[in-house]
Nucleic acid binder design. Structure first.
Length: 433
RNA sequence: CGGGGAGUAGCGCAGCCUGGUAGCGCACCUGGUUUGGGACCAGGGGGUCGAAGGUUCGAAUCCUUUCUCCCCGACCA
């Protein structure tokens, strides 16, 4: 993509409305624009990142055996009356009427809808287990939205729902999803810490929340330092769940079960939550299946959420410096910024055009900064945007057939020939695909 | 919802106390000079001062009402 043909409205000043660093950077990098409190438009750069995160979440869901569907944002109140949550959910639930006077709502979650879908089609234990997910916008009319997309009223969430014949099977589904969550967050470049959690208004009796480490995180975590280096491929979920981890108000330092030397304290951001809640909804909404004795029994359900739009903010909270965002390569909107310091110079332009073609042919996302503007603005804009690699082409070095390759994360740059730089980048980037 | 703060040009702000018809920096447009870290010079465009009502000869400024946004707290992906 050529910068001059694209739309990345960067800002020099911090907007007065934004308090936390991810919110400030998202606005300054031209990723989002606030529409009203807790509601945002996603501009091209933000949308690219959102889609990348969504895709990683989707892949891991698919790998886990979950099946994608898409349910509507607008729901009829009827089902919520049946489940009892039309009363219970309170003012967070955005309610309105359609032209026929029917009570409608903007879904904050989808247990009722999915249960209805399930009961419409599934009648036999032979069709279990079943695990359906969707990635859809939700709305919760928060008392106080804040922190940009980290705590929006409208937000993109991946939620899925597992259906099993009994509690034992449901726990297998639960643990399967537990592992999928750890894998997902690791794949996003984050460090997940899982904590046993309260079940909250969704209800149920087994629940974990997933926090990712970020120095600017909202909650303080106390946990076994082993959790920072786990590999979900070779560890059982039960074993992983047995490691100590607690948020500050639940941590009792006198009765902590692990040694102080193994205890780590860090800040975290909650990005996922999973629940097993048994037959709470299936009973109320008649989601029954017949077992092998022909008896009708309510299915055991679990629900699992990942805040996809929140993750955009969480990743920035985890990876930034005073110059801007530092994207993990997996979610970077572009892998490379190709920066032409002097677009009016014939040789610079020729070299950049050539390099651009090479990366386009390699199918590598590249942002070609061909704008005619000052050098400082280009370099600082690209730092702000946070592409992992900056390939800087200027008149001075080009005389010696050299370009500068800078790694955003370390700020280390080297002078290489264009060929060397290309080879290095293609190798690096393809190895992380 | 309780407590605090803010709405003046695209962004960041000053002006308000003490009323006299709006200004600064950045951004933007034109021309020129520059060119390895947010350039320089000259010229230029852009605001019914959140909205409504009131006081006054006169309101960004004083009074009333209202809307919006932000921060702290209680709650959440």
């Amino acid at each position: 993509m050529k910068f001059s043909n694209y739309f990345i409205p960067t800002l020099k000043n911090n907007p007065a409305d934004a308090e936390i660093v991810s919110h400030q950077l998202m606005i300054r990098a031209g990723m989002i624009k606030q529409s009203s409190a807790g509601i945002y438009s996603w501009l091209p750069l933000g949308l690219r990142v959102l889609k990348k995160i969504e895709e990683i979440v989707r892949q891991e869901q698919n790998n886990s055996g979950a099946i994608e569907i898409l349910m509507p944002t607008i729901q009829s109140a009827d089902l919520w009356v049946k489940s009892g949550r039309y009363e219970d959910y309170g003012k967070e639930l955005l309610r309105f009427k359609d032209r026929g006077g029917r009570e409608m709502l903007y879904g904050p979650t989808n247990e009722e809808l999915i249960t209805e879908i399930f009961q419409s089609y599934v009648n036999s234990y032979k069709d279990l287990p079943l695990n359906l997910y969707h990635i859809q916008w939700k709305f919760r009319d928060e008392l106080r939205p804040r922190f940009g997309v980290m705590r929006g009223r409208e937000f993109l969430m991946k939620d899925n729902y597992s259906f099993d014949l009994n509690e034992e099977d449901a726990k297998i589904s639960y643990n399967n999803m537990f592992t999928a969550y750890i894998k997902t967050f690791l794949k996003l470049g984050l460090t997940p810490i899982s904590l046993r959690a309260d079940t909250g208004p969704i209800g149920g009796n087994l629940s974990h929340e997933f926090q990712v480490l970020a120095s600017t995180g909202e909650s303080t975590l106390y946990y076994d330092k082993e959790l920072e280096s786990i590999n979900p491929e070779n560890i059982e979920p039960e074993k992983l769940q047995s490691y100590y981890a607690a948020v500050d108000d639940l941590h009792d330092k006198d009765n902590c079960p692990i040694d102080e030397k193994n205890l780590k304290i860090s800040k975290g951001i909650e990005v996922g939550h999973i629940f097993y809640f048994g037959t709470k909804y299936s009973e109320k909404l008649n989601a029954n299946v017949q077992n092998n004795n022909g008896e009708k029994i309510p299915v055991h359900m679990g629900s699992y959420g990942i805040g996809v739009s929140r993750l955009v903010g969480a990743i920035i909270e985890a990876f930034h410096d005073d110059k801007g965002i530092i994207w993990p390569i997996q979610v970077a909107p572009f892998k490379i910024s190709l920066i032409n310091l002097m677009p009016d110079d014939k040789n610079c332009k020729l070299e950049c055009d050539k390099l651009y073609e090479i990366f386009i042919n390699e199918n590598i996302d590249i942002l070609y900064d061909d704008r005619v503007c000052s050098i400082g603005k280009k370099l600082s804009d690209n730092d702000l945007i946070g592409t992992p690699y900056h390939l800087i082409v200027g008149k001075r070095d080009l005389i010696n057939n050299l370009v500068e390759l800078k790694e955003r994360k370390t700020n280390i740059s080297k002078k290489l020939t264009p060929e060397e730089a290309c080879n290095f980048l293609i190798k690096q980037i393809n190895s992380k695909k």
